[in-house]
Design a protein around this nucleic acid. Structure first.
Length: 117
DNA sequence: AATATGACATGCT
DNA sequence: AAGCATGCCATAT
C-alpha cells in the first residue's frame, strides 16, 4: 500500500482538535493520543502548522504539556493565539494557561457542565 | 545516506 | 524553576 498523503494522515488529528470545546484547552500529547498516534506529539504540531488557514480548526486550544504556547512570546502567532484564548475566557498567567482549570477531558463531557467544580 | 530541524513529551538533575 | 538528555518521526538539506 502506498503511503497516504500528509493531509490525509493529518485528518484524525484535525478531527481530534475539533472536539475541544470553546473555553477549554488540550495538549499536543493528548491530541496525539485521541488521534490514535500516542507518543507522536510533534506530528500534531506539524499537522497544525501545515493546516490551511481556511480550515475550520480551533488550533489555538492546543497547548504544550506545561500550559505554555508553542509560539515564541515575541511572535504574532503567539499574540493571535493568546487573543483567541482570551476571547474564550482562557487567560495566561506568567505565560501559561492553568491546565488544572482549563484542560479538557472526556469525563467533563459525560458529566456535563454542572458537575464541574 | 546522514544530519539537522521542528506549533512536543517525559524523566532526571 | 529551569535546564538537559532522550524518545519521537516527517521534512528538509
Amino acid at each position: 500500500m502506498p503511503k497516504l498523503p500528509a493531509d490525509a494522515r493529518y485528518q484524525p488529528i484535525y478531527d481530534a482538535v475539533r472536539q475541544i470545546p470553546p473555553g477549554r484547552v488540550s495538549t499536543y500529547g493528548r491530541i496525539a493520543e485521541l488521534a490514535g498516534i500516542p507518543g507522536r506529539a510533534r506530528m500534531v504540531g506539524r499537522a497544525l502548522r501545515d493546516s490551511p488557514t481556511n480550515a475550520d480548526l480551533p488550533w489555538h486550544r492546543v497547548l504544550r504539556a506545561d500550559g505554555s504556547l508553542a509560539f515564541p512570546r515575541d511572535t504574532d502567532g503567539h499574540q493571535r493565539q493568546r487573543q483567541r484564548l482570551q476571547h474564550e475566557g482562557v487567560i495566561l498567567r506568567q505565560g501559561r494557561v492553568d491546565l488544572d482549570r482549563y484542560i479538557w477531558s472526556l469525563d467533563q463531557m459525560l458529566w456535563g457542565p454542572q458537575a464541574c467544580g
